[in-house]
Every structure is written in C-alpha cells, then in structure tokens.
Simulated assay, not measured.
Amino acid sequence: MAITLTQQEKLILKQVALPPRPQALLDFAAETKQPEPDISKIAKILQSDGAISAAVLQVVNSAAFRRNREIDAIDQAIMMLGLKRIIPLVKAVALKSSVKTSAALATFWDDQTKIAECCAQLALRLNKPGLSNYAYMLGLFHFAGVPILYQHFKDYDCVFEFAEQNGWDKANVFQSQQYNTCHATIGALLAQQWGLPKAMIYAIYYQHDMEDLYSSGELDEVGLDLLSILKIARSACYGDKYQQDWLVATDQICDHFNLSDDEVTELIQDIMLA
C-alpha cells in the first residue's frame, strides 16, 4: 500500500503547508520511544503545553471512555490508561491546536470532536475496546485536510456546496478535478507526517473510495474496522445529511461486522441517544 501522488499534486504540495507537530508532541514522542519511558518526564512534557494536557483530561473523562471515576492529573491518566492508549489521544488533541480554522469553519472542530466521541463509543459497543482510542483519533484526523485546503484555495466553498448536494465521496472527486488534489490525500499525508499508524493513514486516504475496498486488500483488518466505525459514526452524527455516502458503504460494513441492516440502524440510534 502507498499514497500515490500525481506530478500535479507534488507541485501543489510544495505550496500547501502541512502543520508541524507541536514541540511538546515531538518531546512526548521521543520519550515514549525510549526502551524504558520515564512516566514522570512524560507527564511534565504534556503539562508544559496547557492546551494539550487540558484536552487530554477532558477526553479521558468524557462519556466516550466511560471512566468509573474522574481523572484529574496527567500522570494519573498515563498510569490508569497506559502509554499505549494515551499516545493516540495526545496526538489527536494536539491536532486541534495545530490545524487552524477560519471563521467560516467555526463549528468544524466541534463536528469532528462529536464524530470522534461517537467513534470511541462504537468501538466499545462493537466489542473492540482496544480500538477505542485509535477510533477517537481517526474521528478527529479524518477530515483534517479540509481546513488546510480551505486556507489554500480561496474558492473552496464550492466544495462544501457540492458536498451538500452530492455527499463527500463525490465531493472528493470534485476536489481532484478542481484542484488536482483532495482532502483525503492531504489528510493522509498529514497523518503520515505526524507518525500515525499505517492503518490510520490508509483509512484516511481511502475513506471515500469504498467501492470494493473491503475485498481489495488495500486495508488490513484493523484499517477496515476503523474505517467502518468512522462511517457509522458519521451517519449517526449527520443523520440524513450526506446520506449518499452512507448508502454506498452500508452493505460492506454490515458484512464486515456480521450485522444486519436493522442491527446497524439500532446501533446508530443508540449512539445518537447516548
């Protein structure tokens, strides 16, 4: 598997600036890769960035993760969740402060946070608790290419207008025709630059190429789990909006999770009421 870039995309990417990882995230990543990571040092690194530490605590205490008691300190969060589970959450919340949005996209991160929370809950309800943190991260990261392209192309509003009428799967193709690149590619490159797992990178890259994706071998089992969870979460959050995208994915997702249409519909309704 590989992210394929056209020559035109390579030229565009020289002009589109992908946001770098914050220094706290770089220091955090370096320490977590040590043979014996120092938990107290990791906690201090995260505490050095107030926005990241506050956001991590907000996430771990949210309904999406069903904590029995409130976690009120970063070191406590690390000890209770473990580094393996805290790493994707730290990367996820760091993204929100790094990818800037204009006034026209005022609710963008609110929408992505809602989707991320639904993703985490779905992972639990589908008996895949080990994926909940990564599902949350995918929920935040999967549309990160949108505000980046919005800042670069002054007429990017036309993509939103197109998506309103035709769904984001077709809008992704529309972007490629208009700008010679699309938000799925930009988002995947950002995920790659930030050191996200390969399954996450390719789930972002292929999020709008659902036809025959489940039999193509382009995504491994974890990637398909995450992408399926994302699609269900988006349907739960947006309802009838972008329904075209959901209809394309429904049968493959039902087969993948061995669920009937009614069971998936009930799952969506439960998440909407949560």
Rank of each mutant, 00 (worst) to 15 (best):
E161F: 06
P147W: 03
D38G: 05
L273H: 08
D262P: 00
V59S: 04
G145M: 11
Q252I: 01
K96A: 10
Q34M: 13
I268H: 12
T32I: 15
A135M: 01
A233I: 04
N172Y: 00
L267Q: 13
M210H: 08
L26T: 14
D245G: 05
M137P: 00
Q207A: 14
P88Q: 04
G167W: 01
S260V: 00
Q8E: 13
Q47A: 09
H208C: 13
V90G: 07
I229V: 14
N133K: 00
R21F: 08
D209K: 14
K41H: 14
F65Y: 12
Q243I: 12
Y156F: 15
Q76Y: 09
A73W: 10
E164V: 02
Y206W: 11
F65M: 03
C158V: 15
A116G: 02
A2H: 13
D72T: 15
K41G: 04
L124C: 01
M80F: 10
S235P: 00
M272P: 02
P37R: 00
L227W: 11
Q207E: 09
T107D: 15
M1E: 02
Y150V: 00
H142Q: 12
D262F: 07
A54T: 14
L124P: 04
I52Y: 14
K198Y: 07
D157C: 02
F162H: 15
D251Q: 14
G82T: 04
I78F: 02
L247C: 06
Q269L: 08
F65A: 02
N258R: 12
A163N: 08
I201E: 11
T4S: 05
I39S: 03
T32L: 10
G139L: 07
A191V: 01
A92F: 02
Q15S: 11
Y156D: 04
K96T: 12
I42T: 07
P37M: 06
L189S: 05
L196C: 10
I268K: 12
Y242H: 09
T6V: 02
N180W: 01
Y202D: 11
V90A: 13
L259E: 03
I232Y: 10
A29L: 15
Q175W: 11
F174G: 10
K154E: 06
